[in-house]
């Protein structure tokens, strides 16, 4: 508990830990910088764990919305989680959320309109599965990071 960066992977970016390519260290780093103390990481920890709750709630809502074939709701949920994951620098989660947002808006990945709702729903189903995996990966990494910090 004494040293600030006892994380195993923390050799490259100064005292910034390497958290893998799922997490953008520059973005995440600026949240870590907000901590008053690197020892307890009170602020960033509460932010990240708050995000965990938020993400899990959102995934549940997404499941429900998917069952209800509510594309508009999925668009909103995708957008919502995109925002917070982007702010934390969780690149992969963010990218998948962006896809869900687009599909929910009846768009293709490149933003062109996609009138086939069934296709959009199918895509969302796939992407939702992906994003959940991506999420649990970063969750693991981050929990490990904060547990060791």
């Amino acid at each position: 508990m004494a040293a600030s960066d006892q994380n195993d992977d923390s050799q490259d970016t100064g005292n910034m830990p390497d958290l893998g390519d799922a997490i953008d260290i520059v973005t995440f780093g600026q949240i870590l910088e907000m901590d008053d103390s690197e020892e307890d990481r009170e602020f960033s920890k509460s932010i990240v764990f708050g995000f965990f709750e938020q993400a899990e709630e959102t995934f549940e809502s997404m499941d429900t919305a998917l069952e209800e074939k509510n594309l508009d709701e999925l668009y909103k949920l995708g957008h919502f989680l995109k925002g917070s994951s982007a702010t934390l620098g969780l690149t992969k989660v963010k990218d998948s959320c962006e896809k869900i947002q687009r599909y929910g808006k009846k768009e293709n990945e490149d933003g062109t309109p996609e009138p086939d709702e069934a296709l959009c729903l199918r895509r969302i189903t796939d992407t939702l599965a992906t994003v959940k995996t991506e999420y649990s990966e970063v969750e693991k990494i981050l929990k490990k990071f904060f547990d060791s910090a």
């Binding site: 907000m34 602020f43 708050g50 938020q54 919502f80 702010t87």
Partner: peptide, 16 residues
């Protein structure tokens, strides 16, 4: 901001 993660980080920036 409806997203509390963004909102908290934003306020923290502004506070600082």
């Amino acid at each position: 901001e409806d997203d509390r993660t963004c909102s908290r980080i934003g306020s923290k920036f502004l506070n600082q």
